[in-house]
């Protein structure tokens, strides 16, 4: 009981921290937000992932500067880039299912999870930029490959941490 809550809470804190810390990789500093969500999904079951991602949105909404770029508040959630944040909820559930599959199925599910971040993102953006085609042009294509790389990096990392987890910490 306590274990379940403390595990979710720590992952929530970790996801929040990794969303704020930005690293100077490439021309623009990136955060590890997407990365953190997908990694979290590897360790929690789908319902826990759902709870943590809802918790993340709630924490951001009530004023913690944990959205990308240190933003917070309801305005960010319904602003032009807010759809991506909503997308984390389905994405973390799908990714969590993905980690329970293996081989090609896992890849397909992970890809679906990535796309499920971008669908609400592009939909909300399309209200602001007039038209879904513009939204995809400015809001999906320039970013999706970077995220795909991030997810590729998770593979070795997740296996390493999982190995550690099964060894010493139940």
């Amino acid at each position: 009981m306590a274990k379940h809550v403390s595990k979710m809470a720590l992952w929530l804190a970790l996801v929040s921290v990794l969303s704020i810390i930005s690293f100077p990789i490439g021309p623009i500093p990136i955060t590890l937000q997407v990365f953190a969500f997908f990694l979290m999904a590897a360790f929690l079951n789908p319902s826990e992932s759902f709870e943590v991602s809802m918790g993340y949105l709630t924490l951001g909404t009530i004023g913690l500067p944990i959205f990308a770029g240190g933003a917070s508040g309801i305005a960010t959630l319904i602003g032009p880039a807010g759809g991506y944040l909503w997308g984390f909820v389905p994405a973390s559930i799908i990714a969590s299912v993905a980690w329970r599959k293996s081989g090609i199925k896992r890849m397909v599910f992970l890809l679906m999870a990535l796309i499920s971040i971008y669908i609400p993102g592009a939909l909300i953006l399309s209200i602001y930029v007039k038209g879904i085609i513009n939204a995809i042009k400015y809001g999906v294509l320039p970013f999706i490959w970077v995220d795909a790389i991030k997810i590729a990096v998770i593979f070795p990392l997740a296996t390493r941490v999982t190995k550690f987890k099964t060894q010493s910490v139940r």
Binding site: A2, V5, A9, L10, F23, L157, R160, V161, K165
Partner: peptide, 30 residues
């Protein structure tokens, strides 16, 4: 890009392991 991404691993692993340990200790305390 790849090398820098790899460079994150020595940073992230201790962070995750630390967090997992904290979660365990917290659960025991609770």
């Amino acid at each position: 890009l790849i090398q820098r991404a790899k460079g994150m691993i020595p940073l992230l692993i201790p962070l995750f392991v630390g967090a997992v340990r904290m979660a365990d200790e917290l659960a025991i305390a609770m």
